[in-house]
Write a protein that binds this DNA or RNA. Structure first.
Lengths: 214, 214
DNA sequence: GTAAGACTGAACTGGCGAGTTCAGTAGCCA
DNA sequence: TGGCTACTGAACTCGCCAGTTCAGTCTTAC
């Protein structure tokens, strides 16, 4: 294959390896040699593509955050036209959002972001759009449509979105601070979150599901 | 005062300084000399009281986490005997919990804990009791009493506690990832959280407050 | 007054890792 | 063939910091 390879896919391999190693060791403990080894590349090649350890970190984090947010937004698209029964769609979307949230790479990116926010303040804007958190705002858009269509109680869509996301991610992060939760647990958390959300924001026609009062 | 001083309060000063500097720089970037300076103490004194940088970190984190959790639990005690009107008490307690959560020191402890959990796995047990998260379980105890007294809808108290805490902390962490939120914002978040919580878990007699449907 | 012990400041060792240099190799194009 | 470019591996410099040593000081106890 006579393509001008090397250049492109080595850079990609380095960025992948960088996120892997940074996730494993943290920024300071990660040494560039280990990243080079993980990428099957010599150390000077790393410095050739990405001048610094700092730029290496920045680029790797940017790429990883972009894909993570992309997955979230793609999942949220499925709320655009829910069928006639809101609750099951909401449950499915909630579960998939939670899967994105608990994905190993996504967890690592969040952890590194919060750990290194002081040293790399610009990285915070990866996750924040002009008006707050990007995923939250996208969810707020969907909820606003649903409220306007009479499928949800009219309320501040940004608050509702924040709360639905909090109901999803809070319990998951609380119960599994280190590792990704098993999928059964995720489903339980997602169902409980949607249940509570619909009790608070649903209209009479939408039932909250067979949870709770037993 | 002919007490054998020096010993005790120097140790305390060192631990305080350690948390301050670790919060400012992170574990790796914090150097022992800076901690010694912050504590107005010579570097060998630090090593005299706390053998290692690692033990220094462990002890400082343990002390800080203990006080933070103590504040949370003290606040939760006020839910033991709420008056005849649940909603305002819940709002006050929620606001104070949120204040504890957003306290600068508490934020730093959480950030350091998640950043260094891989290197100091034992530190996680600071926050976790035998059955999950200690604050969550304490809140679950209160909610169980309230449910038994007919003041809340009967439901799994652990799930309810997780969700109430998530409704409080999630939006705060989302909106203010770096600094402590201003108190007005905290009050708004707490009221919205209690509102949503009572819509989902309240019984007919407890009104969710004048929020929402505007 | 004097001895024991906590503390200080400064200097030192040793290791580790970021970033560089360089001589050499492999693929590509004329 | 011969030159260009990307890459390799190894060795090297340099600064930083954990942890130690030590001679001297200050406090307290008897």
């Amino acid at each position: 294959m006579p393509t001008p390879r090397g250049r492109i896919d080595k850079r990609q391999a380095i960025l992948d390896a960088a996120i892997t190693v940074f996730a494993r060791r943290g920024y300071d403990q990660a040494c560039v040699q280990e990243i080079a080894d993980e990428a099957r590349v010599a150390k000077p090649t790393v410095y050739n593509h990405l001048t610094d350890k700092a730029t290496l970190f920045r680029e790797a984090m940017t790429a990883a955050a972009r894909t993570a947010i992309g997955r979230h937004l793609a999942t949220l698209d499925r709320l655009t036209d829910p069928g006639d029964d809101l609750q099951p769609v909401l449950r499915e979307v909630a579960l998939d959002l939670l899967r994105c949230h608990c994905d190993e790479r996504a967890r690592a990116v969040r952890r590194l972001l919060s750990a290194e926010a002081a040293r790399f303040p610009d990285l915070l804007s990866l996750v924040h759009g002009p008006s707050g958190h990007r995923v939250t705002e996208a969810l707020a858009d969907r909820l606003a449509r649903l409220a306007l269509a009479g499928r949800l109680r009219p309320a501040d869509p940004s608050v509702a979105a924040e709360q639905l996301l909090a109901l999803l991610t809070g319990p998951a992060d609380l119960r599994w601070p280190l590792v990704a939760p098993p999928d059964d647990d995720l489903a339980g958390i997602a169902d409980a979150a949607v249940d509570t959300f619909l009790r608070a924001y649903g209209v009479g026609t939408e039932k909250p599901g067979p949870h709770g009062a037993g």
